[in-house]
Simulated assay, not measured.
Amino acid sequence: MSQTPAPDSSALNSSRAPEPVGLYPHARRVGNLLFLSGVGPRQRGEKAIPGVELDANGQVLRYDFERQCHAVFQNVRYIVEEAGAQWQDLVDVTVFLTNMKDDFATYNRLYAEYFADSQPCRTTVEINCLPTPIAIELKCIAWVGER
């Protein structure tokens, strides 16, 4: 039985986005598509999460969801731009929220501002938790090619 070889791909890491919390790249380019790993709101070189206040046991006391959204969108922009694409080249966005009931309206308003001109496909799901105490993570696909 013969196997089809994997398409040429290259792993990419941003010098501006936060360091991955596991063994994965920020993105992987396959042909003209750029697949981003999950992107959260942390900032490069920092352990603290923008807008999150933790207690002594690492449990979330309070969080500023709007601040997290802005940070996540900025991190996605860093990765996409360093890979040679632009914000408007995003074609698909999957959003993971840990509190749809309280945060969706804010997220939806900010998403509409950031994506007013490009309008990629979008899926939003609520999940129980993320690997770090964040309230939002984005998984994106972008077009990287000639315009």
Rank of each mutant, 00 (worst) to 15 (best):
T98W: 04
Y111I: 00
T123K: 08
N128Y: 08
D55E: 06
T123L: 10
E146N: 13
I49R: 07
P41R: 01
Q43S: 04
G45T: 04
T4P: 01
L23G: 04
K101P: 04
P50Q: 04
R62H: 14
E46L: 13
T98G: 06
R42K: 13
D89A: 12
C129Q: 13
I79D: 02
V52L: 09
Q74F: 04
A116N: 05
T124Y: 05
G145S: 14
Q119G: 00
N57M: 08
A83R: 04
V95S: 09
A11H: 10
P131A: 08
V30M: 12
A48N: 12
G145V: 15
R67V: 07
C121K: 11
N13M: 12
A71I: 02
K139P: 01
R62Q: 14
Y63R: 09
S14H: 09
N13A: 05
P18H: 10
D8R: 08
H70W: 12
P25Y: 10
Y63A: 03
H26R: 07
F96V: 06
R44Y: 10
V125E: 07
A112D: 15
S37N: 12
S9E: 03
W143C: 03
I127L: 11
D92C: 09
Y114H: 14
L54A: 05
S9P: 00
Q74K: 13
K139V: 15
V39T: 12
A135T: 01
L97D: 00
G145D: 10
H70F: 11
L23V: 12
S118H: 12
G145P: 13
L130K: 05
S10C: 03
D103H: 15
A6D: 09
L90S: 08
P25R: 03
P20W: 01
G58C: 04
L54S: 05
R44H: 13
E82Y: 11
V52D: 02
G31R: 08
L23N: 15
R77C: 04
V144C: 15
K139T: 09
A135G: 14
A116L: 07
R122W: 05
R29K: 15
E113M: 11
E137T: 07
A105K: 11
V91Y: 01
L130M: 11
P50E: 04
N108K: 10
E126T: 10
S15G: 08
A85C: 11
P50K: 03
A142E: 06
G38S: 12
Q86G: 11
D92I: 03
L110H: 10
V144M: 10
I141H: 02
T123A: 10
Y63I: 04
P20V: 11
R42A: 08
G58V: 00
S9M: 06
D89I: 07
C69E: 03
V30Q: 08
R147K: 15
Q59L: 10
L33W: 13
M100F: 15
P5Y: 01
N99M: 04
W143H: 14
K139G: 00
T4D: 05
R16H: 06
P41S: 13
R42I: 00
E53K: 14
A56Y: 06
Q74L: 10
Y114V: 13
G51W: 08
A142D: 05
G58I: 02
F104M: 11
Q88H: 15
K47R: 15
V125Y: 14
G38D: 08
F35C: 01
P7I: 07
Q3D: 12
L110Y: 13
A56D: 14
L110K: 09
M1K: 06
P50F: 06
R109S: 11
